[in-house]
Every structure is written in structure tokens, then in C-alpha cells.
Design a protein around this nucleic acid. Sequence first.
DNA 1: ATTTATATTGAGACTGAGTCTCAATAAAGC
DNA 2: GCTTTATTGAGACTCAGTCTCAATATAAAT
Lengths: 152, 152
Amino acid sequence: MTIKNSNIEHFKDTLQREGLRLTSQRIAILEDILASEEHRECDDILFSLRSNQISVSRATVYRTLEILEKGGFVRKMNIGDGRFRYENKLPKPHHDHMICLECGRIIEFVDQEIEARQVHLTKQHHFKLVRHIHQLFGICEDCQPAAANKGV
Amino acid sequence: MTIKNSNIEHFKDTLQREGLRLTSQRIAILEDILASEEHRECDDILFSLRSNQISVSRATVYRTLEILEKGGFVRKMNIGDGRFRYENKLPKPHHDHMICLECGRIIEFVDQEIEARQVHLTKQHHFKLVRHIHQLFGICEDCQPAAANKGV
DNA sequence: ATTTATATTGAGACTGAGTCTCAATAAAGC
DNA sequence: GCTTTATTGAGACTCAGTCTCAATATAAAT
């Protein structure tokens, strides 16, 4: 059994547990996400499907993304520009993001010291930490010459 | 001269530098923000003004908030629920936020180690850090008993 | 103080991401 | 294959935020 098929099986189990059905649209959306390493918005996924002659409605993509998020297949991220991004979460350990303000490029990072400090700080405030967002906005290496010309 | 008046003077200077005018609406909005320590959304500010018999349109509040943000008077924050929050930035040094998922309470924090690690990490990636968002979501002390009952 | 040029305002139209509705369709179990 | 019921697509809808434009107010000039 391929890795891809084992993911579909896993998805099937997740659906069954919730009394949901395995449809061709859901499979197509999951496969498209599994095939990408990018942080994409809904329409990126929609157009990617369409470029493979798969027609799915926008509503179905949103609905499926919600199921996939709950099932731990994708991570939904808010980078503050009003549109959510979705990334294939399966092969990835926890990480945070640097986001280029010029080109939108996303660089992933993790830092154990920061993770530990977060736990420490929340304990100090008797706050039960559930999840966190840590985003570093700036200019990536490639965009720095261009940004300097624009006076950034 | 009171602290309040010196802020209005500072605002006046900021406006003049941009060729903008000092209007009663802009003063009222700034004063309302200066009088609050909270992280409020546009409508909170609008209703606060109205409760003081000051009628301003929503568009003007948004427009003024934009000017105040650029001028460094307020900080605009995205806590991921689709509505921006604005906080009086003047008396405050840099800080990040813990956000209670139950009651929306916001606790401010700073940690020099985290700040230093951020700089270190971005340097490693030759990324020019401009700003960051660091939000810790969870359950605040007060909400933990209630959340436990709901099975969170 | 009056005039003049132009920035600002308010009301409501508009935008765009995302959600909801509902009739038609398609899974899944029998 | 039949039945039950979840799912789909199309488009209406929502909601925060932005834009438009005629009426108004500010600031500078006279």
C-alpha cells in the first residue's frame, strides 16, 4: 500500500467515525493537499483541482477543509491579510512561520527555547496553553535588494 | 498642560505633517481611545462614543483608526476571529498577548529571551525582521473551572 | 471676518472571504 | 436494487471593512 493510499484509508476512518461519507470530491481535495507543500488559500486549491479537470464547488472545498482540519490533516493559518491559508500537516512536526511582506514567501522555523519560555510564561499566569501563533514578518533574503530600492 | 492635551497637540502635529485636518470627530475618537486600556474593536469604540452622546460614523472611526495607527497612537491587532482590535499604544512598551478562548480576556506579556531568539532566528535565515505576532491561546485562570465542566 | 480651496464627513453602496440554504444527487447499508 | 440520508453545487447571504459622492467644515489667504 502506498503512502497516499494509507492517507486515504486514514481519511476514510476519520469520516466513518463521524458518520460522514467518502465522496470523490473529498478524495480529490485531500489528494491535492497531500501533493502540495505550500501554504495555500481556498482558491489556490480550487484552481489547482480545476487545472486537473476536477470541478468542485468553492463551498465544498471550504467544507472539506474544515473536516480535514478537525481530522488533523491540514493546518489552517491566519497570516493577517484576511484570507486563511491551509497547509498539509501530515508529514510535519510543529513549527512557526516567518512571512515575507514583499513576496509572501513563508519560511518555517522552530525553536525549543521559545517553546519552553511559552510554557513557563503561561504557567506564571495560571493560563492553560492550548495553541499559539508566532509569526515573524519582514523581508526575506531574496526581496531585500528590491525592498531597499523602494526605501523599506 | 495635561497629558491628555499634550497628546492632542502631538496628534495635531502628526496631522499637519500629512496635510490633514484636526476635526471634532478625530479628537473625540482619539480621546476615547486614550481613556481606555482595553483591546477594542471598531464598534466598541463607536458605541463608547455614542454613550457619551458623540455621533460619528463607522467609516470615520475606521478612517481615524488608520491615521492613529500610522501615527503610532494605536496598535491594530488581529486575534484571528475576523475582527481587528485596537489598543491605546502610547503608554505601553512592546508586549505580546495571551488570549482566553473562553472569555476573550487578553493578558499582556513580554519575554526578553523570546525577543532575543526571534532576532537570532531571523538572522540565521538572512530575514530582515520588521514586526512579529506572538499570541498564546488557551484558558485563563478564571475560566478553567467552567472549561473543565464543559470538558475542554 | 469673509472668502476660497480642499479635506472631511455620513449614508449607504460595495467588496470579498467565507457561510448558509435547498433542491437535486450520490453514498452506504439492507 | 431500494431506501435512507449525507453531500453537492449554485447562488443567496453575512459581516467586517472600504469606497463613493454630495454636503459640510477646516485652515489659510485676503
